[in-house]
Design a binder for these strands. Sequence first.
DNA 1: TTATATTAAGACAATTTTGTCCCAAAAATA
DNA 2: TATTTTTGGGACAAAATTGTCTTAATATAA
Lengths: 144, 144
Amino acid sequence: MRALSKATIYALRALIYVASKDNKDQQYVTIGEISEELNISFHFLTKTFQVLTQNGVLESHRGPHGGVLLKKPIDRIFLIDLVHILEGNDFFEKCLLGLPGCGEKEPCPVHNFWKNVKGSLEKEFEKTSLAHLIKGISTGKMRI
Amino acid sequence: MRALSKATIYALRALIYVASKDNKDQQYVTIGEISEELNISFHFLTKTFQVLTQNGVLESHRGPHGGVLLKKPIDRIFLIDLVHILEGNDFFEKCLLGLPGCGEKEPCPVHNFWKNVKGSLEKEFEKTSLAHLIKGISTGKMRI
DNA sequence: TTATATTAAGACAATTTTGTCCCAAAAATA
DNA sequence: TATTTTTGGGACAAAATTGTCTTAATATAA
Ligand code: SF4
Ligand code: SF4
């Protein structure tokens, strides 16, 4: 099951990279560095980072010593927001069978079943922040 | 979140259609009828149905009065098996970040989180059969 | 045995997603 | 001001997925 597009996966890995870099003086991190470290296409990552910048997740700065940095503390950046931005606000509304023009009123056979699954996933995303995600990295037991 | 490919979605809807048709004398149902009723491309559905036939979910028969029918009782056809056949056996092994060559030994930040989500989804698929999925159709309160 | 109905199979086209490339815009600095 | 470094943005290419079409194989029945 691929829950997320590659573009989103790249963005998440990149954000985890930035978040896990303890960067007290808040220096900008270049997309070049990130893409190189994580082996992600520079231009592809740049494009999806633009979306994050436009949506207030990242702050970007051009020119020498430029780059990107997180606009909020890592414990206030939640997976659910990232997913809404990157995959669309209807991410958790999409359904298993994807029938046209259906819903609560006239639900298909899997409607209630899927509603539960989605519900628990959504809760999980709501309570998971970048801070949670980078736990374990510092100990060296996890990697991106 | 699109959990399943369109090919799989079509197959599931088609199977639900066949299963919900109470067909005591076990007549073959033509793919033509199914594709027309559900507005699915005939040829596309035919191809994914071939996979189901090759994997013992459907029995097919060519020629006049031919078609397909379920090879097992509807309460013995489980979502998890269909998904394994249609999406690959690694469906529930795929991970959120999809890093190359990682796993339990050297897990990434989201590994444990995702493991739980996948686990509950898998259980849900294991216990859901076609029989469960067609409930509510007979009452006319649900549709495919 | 011929015509017909149906699935099987594979070639091909369209669309979407992913990835590459080029140049413009902005900022620092020399 | 000129040069360099960096993101921004768009055109284009490649790959994967989805959809269409044509022909073959098989079974039924007239
Ligand atoms: S009834 Fe619900 S689960 Fe079924 S296709 Fe519609 S939204 Fe999806
Ligand atoms: S460590 Fe686990 S969750 Fe992370 S990329 Fe690997 S398999 Fe996926």
